[in-house]
Simulated scan of single mutants.
Amino acid sequence: MKAVLALLILPMSLYAGESNAQQARKLFNSVYRMVFASKGCTLHYDVNIIGIYKTKGIISYKGKKSRYIEDRYLSWNDGVTAYMVDKKKKAVKIYRADDDNKDGYLAKFKYDLNNFEYSWKEGKDGIQLILRPKTSHLIGIRQVVGVLDSKTHYPKYLRIKVAFFWTTVKISHFSTDELDDKIFVFPRKQFSSYSFIEHRKD
C-alpha cells in the first residue's frame, strides 16, 4: 500500500511528455487500484438523482468483495455470493456475485472503462478527472467528473451526467485501512426471520 500511496501523491508534472489523455488514464487507474486494493477501502457516499434515486450509506471494498449499509438496504458480497437485504420488506435476495441483476436500477449504468475518453484539469476543489463516453446514447452516462484531493488523490465527489441532467455523489471519510475478510460474510442469524429469495440459478 505504501508504494501505491506514494504513486498517488506524485505531482502531475512527473507525467510530463505524455498527452493529457494518457496522464488522465494513469491517474484514473491509480485511483481505481486504491479503491479496489487487496487490503481494502471504505467510504461514505450520498447520492441524489432528483425524482429517481436517493440514498446514502457506507460501502467497503476489498478486491471483488464488497459490503454496503444504508437505512433500508444492506448488502454483503464475499466474492462468490451476494446477499441483498431489504429491511422494509424483510427479504433477502441471493445472487451470484457477478450477476448484474443484483444491483437493480444501478445495473442500467454498467459501463466498460475502455469506452471512455479521459482528460484532467485543475479545479478550485481539486483535480478534475473527466470521462466522456466515446459513443453517447440517449439513456445512460454522458459524462463523469471526478474531483480528487490535489495531494492524496482521494475522491471527494463525482458529478455524473445521465441523459440530460446532472447529479452529484458526495464522498467522505475515505479510508484505505486494511479490512478483515469477516466483514464481507453475510450474518445470516441476524436475518433469520426474513424471507430468502434464491436468484443464483436465474
Score class of each variant (00 low, 15 high):
residue 1 M to E: 11
residue 1 M to T: 10
residue 2 K to C: 01
residue 3 A to N: 12
residue 3 A to P: 03
residue 3 A to V: 10
residue 4 V to H: 05
residue 6 A to S: 15
residue 8 L to P: 05
residue 8 L to H: 06
residue 9 I to P: 07
residue 10 L to M: 14
residue 14 L to R: 06
residue 17 G to D: 06
residue 19 S to G: 10
residue 20 N to C: 11
residue 20 N to A: 14
residue 20 N to M: 08
residue 20 N to Q: 13
residue 23 Q to W: 01
residue 24 A to G: 01
residue 27 L to G: 00
residue 30 S to N: 10
residue 31 V to C: 05
residue 31 V to H: 03
residue 36 F to P: 05
residue 38 S to H: 14
residue 39 K to V: 00
residue 39 K to E: 10
residue 39 K to Q: 13
residue 41 C to Q: 09
residue 46 D to P: 05
residue 48 N to K: 13
residue 50 I to W: 06
residue 51 G to N: 01
residue 51 G to Q: 05
residue 51 G to D: 10
residue 60 S to Y: 01
residue 61 Y to K: 09
residue 62 K to V: 03
residue 62 K to P: 00
residue 63 G to I: 01
residue 63 G to Y: 02
residue 67 R to Y: 09
residue 68 Y to Q: 03
residue 74 L to S: 03
residue 77 N to H: 14
residue 79 G to C: 01
residue 79 G to Q: 02
residue 80 V to T: 08
residue 80 V to E: 11
residue 82 A to N: 07
residue 83 Y to G: 07
residue 84 M to G: 07
residue 85 V to Y: 00
residue 87 K to F: 15
residue 89 K to W: 12
residue 92 V to A: 00
residue 93 K to R: 07
residue 98 D to A: 11
residue 99 D to I: 00
residue 100 D to M: 09
residue 101 N to M: 11
residue 103 D to L: 00
residue 103 D to K: 03
residue 104 G to N: 14
residue 107 A to F: 05
residue 108 K to M: 07
residue 108 K to N: 12
residue 109 F to D: 04
residue 110 K to L: 08
residue 111 Y to M: 02
residue 113 L to A: 13
residue 115 N to V: 10
residue 115 N to C: 07
residue 117 E to I: 02
residue 120 W to F: 15
residue 120 W to G: 08
residue 121 K to N: 11
residue 122 E to Q: 07
residue 123 G to S: 12
residue 126 G to T: 09
residue 132 R to E: 13
residue 134 K to S: 05
residue 136 S to E: 13
residue 138 L to W: 11
residue 138 L to S: 13
residue 140 G to T: 04
residue 141 I to G: 06
residue 143 Q to H: 08
residue 145 V to W: 03
residue 146 G to L: 06
residue 146 G to H: 05
residue 147 V to N: 03
residue 150 S to R: 11
residue 152 T to V: 08
residue 155 P to I: 04
residue 155 P to D: 11
residue 157 Y to T: 15
residue 157 Y to R: 15
residue 158 L to Y: 09
residue 158 L to E: 04
residue 159 R to I: 08
residue 160 I to M: 15
residue 161 K to Y: 07
residue 162 V to Q: 12
residue 163 A to E: 11
residue 165 F to Y: 14
residue 166 W to D: 11
residue 169 V to T: 15
residue 170 K to W: 14
residue 172 S to V: 08
residue 174 F to G: 04
residue 177 D to T: 07
residue 177 D to Q: 15
residue 179 L to S: 02
residue 180 D to C: 10
residue 186 F to N: 05
residue 187 P to D: 10
residue 188 R to K: 09
residue 188 R to L: 04
residue 189 K to T: 14
residue 191 F to T: 04
residue 192 S to Q: 05
residue 193 S to E: 13
residue 193 S to P: 12
residue 194 Y to W: 06
residue 198 E to T: 10
residue 199 H to K: 13
residue 200 R to N: 07
